[in-house]
Design a protein around this nucleic acid. Structure first.
Lengths: 112, 112
DNA sequence: CTACTGCTTAGAAAGATGTCAAATTAGAAA
DNA sequence: TTTCTAATTTGACATCTTTCTAAGCAGTAG
């Protein structure tokens, strides 16, 4: 009757300090407009991945700043990068996004 | 065949700068361990609401700090407060949490 | 090897944030 | 009215974050 989720949902149960600390790191990565738009561009990019060279254009920011933001997303576990020659391609990590979705799901969800 | 959602999901579509700015404000509110735990305590509290006096105990922080954090959550639209005499009770705003959940939902979701 | 492009890292400056003590406000009781 | 408790606001301080320039690393071509 009650769905099983991998983590304690945000809205039910008791969140430990460790869980809160880890979660806040992910939210901190999302707490910037540039990083939100970067994540959106990567996730919505044809083929499911985007080259850094595709990501610098839409922003009026320097390349190092974009690189820094990508690093924050990467270290938060939201994206991963792959180097192909001189190019670097980034894609989202679906499990990380699913986990965030589950956090806000009402606790009383019928089991599949 | 495609679900209708009120906002552009994070993982599909194109997020405008305005949307990103507004969203980042909500995530910024969640980007602190204390505020995550406060939100969790409020949401999971019996009766769906918690008095500030219930919220100061679990933290080794001063009352002004708790008050400040509650203000951040309130201004992010995640909680609302109600004064009853000298006491103030807070509850979550479900639509705000639902909206966040929808952000991470895969775009290809069957319509209800 | 050098020269080139693409990308990341390092460090500094400016701005934002978490925390506290002090002050203030809000509401109730005497 | 004064006094009290609960809660919020204010201002200062330490710490963190965003952005840039400069430097450095990664990979490729000649």
């Amino acid at each position: 009757m009650i769905a099983e989720v991998c983590c304690a949902p945000l809205v039910a149960g008791t969140m430990s300090q460790d869980e809160a600390a880890e979660l806040s790191r992910v939210f901190k990565a999302l707490a910037d407009p540039v990083r939100l738009r970067l994540l959106n561009l990567i996730a919505a990019h044809p083929g499911g991945e985007a080259c850094v060279c595709d990501l610098t254009g839409p922003f009026d920011l320097s390349a190092p700043t974009i690189s820094h933001h990508l690093k924050v997303l990467r270290e938060a576990g939201l994206i991963e990068g792959e180097r192909r020659g001189t190019w670097v391609y980034y894609r989202t990590i679906p499990q990380a996004l699913t986990r965030l979705s589950d956090l806000f799901t009402p606790a009383l969800v019928p089991a599949p």
